[in-house]
Design a protein around this nucleic acid. Sequence first.
DNA 1: GTAAAATTAGACGCCATTGTCTAAAACGTC
DNA 2: GACGTTTTAGACAATGGCGTCTAATTTTAC
Lengths: 234, 234
Amino acid sequence: MKDRMTPAVRMTGHTQRGQCAKRMSILDAAADVFCRQGFAGASIDEIAAVACVSRQTIYNHYREKETLFVAVVEDVMNRANAMLFSVLSTFPDRADNLEDELTAFAVRLNKNCICNHDGKFLRKLVQTEGERYPHLFESWRQQGPGKLTTALSALFGRLAHKGALAIDDFDVAARQFVALGNADLQMMILLGGTPTDEELEKAARNAVHTFLKAYGRTEAEKAGHPAQLAAISG
Amino acid sequence: MKDRMTPAVRMTGHTQRGQCAKRMSILDAAADVFCRQGFAGASIDEIAAVACVSRQTIYNHYREKETLFVAVVEDVMNRANAMLFSVLSTFPDRADNLEDELTAFAVRLNKNCICNHDGKFLRKLVQTEGERYPHLFESWRQQGPGKLTTALSALFGRLAHKGALAIDDFDVAARQFVALGNADLQMMILLGGTPTDEELEKAARNAVHTFLKAYGRTEAEKAGHPAQLAAISG
DNA sequence: GTAAAATTAGACGCCATTGTCTAAAACGTC
DNA sequence: GACGTTTTAGACAATGGCGTCTAATTTTAC
């Protein structure tokens, strides 16, 4: 019943750094093994081996397998959310050269949030263990894809107000933007592969091209409603 | 080493029907348990219980766990492929009322091929065990999504030749059609839920609406190139 | 250098599961 | 009703993983 962590408050940097390194090493290894083998198929021994750590050390830091699993998921979710937030902040806010800017944004989104290590991990784990840990992945649902959709929705709304896009339903447009961006990568995403930069670029270009054919405004249309441009920029 | 199945050639209908019923019962139960628990997490005892069958009966029909798993995947894949073929044969071939017809087709596709029992099973299992059984799911990749894309590509090509659509790259358009159709259902698909008929209808309508904004031809365009219509129909 | 804390290797009990085996029961055919 | 086949329940050994414990070793703080 004694709390092994309480002495830590008296520790200075070095021990904490050493402990922290072990913890991260374990979390990384566990993420790797859980992702490949699933919760049931993953063995603590294998995780310990991958982490270059004794099995007992794992039990010291995380009481049992399930605790470790929860910690891994939360860790990956935090990283993924931070990355998503970071990428969302690069959404283009100018209307000029929209096709190129949206394409570059789609590349960033796919590369850093959807096709990267953490994205693959979360997608796979949500499918594999989602029903077994509803509360855990509910927060992923709301903070991951949920946040992505609502944020994108607002950002598209801003562009539409500037007269750069003609969108009736921003939520639908946001979901469709993401869906189009993944259209050419679906197979790779499902199989867990990693697209090359060329594939990412091409997929994003196809997606944005179609998206703008559906929601873009012609130069003539923009010229016909200059007031919308002035209203925002003024 | 003795082959338990050889006496079966002498059997008359009833026994075979009984055996076949057992086999199907086992396959269904195993699909259910494998899907929920994954390969490692599924236990033969649970499968036997769900199938209302003795554990030994499973070992009589399928030598070991892995044999059973392979048989289950092949069984589901056959059903899914048949359904996909069936739905593909209902693709609209007329250009009139295209939006409604494409919407209805998208509903059929999502309802019967992607969001149904077999579709969910295959998607989940491909993600969970795809790396462990590459050859097994390679055929799924080619006959499932691969066939869907190439078939849709050809079907859109037919519509384009009739002048109903303006498509430059049929493969890209086919993938985007599927992606748009899933855009509003992504979350439910990932979580393993089943959309209601209203949700299916709305998702398909949104998808086709955007798809036709990008690839549809205006009445004016169609009128400007009546030759394409005449060339096919004549 | 010393003391405290963390880490390690290994053994251990426990439990679930796999796959085999056997004898009894149920089923279908004749 | 007799016979062959299939199915069943249960016991069984073997395996492997989880989680605990201990004693030795390393790391860190002071």
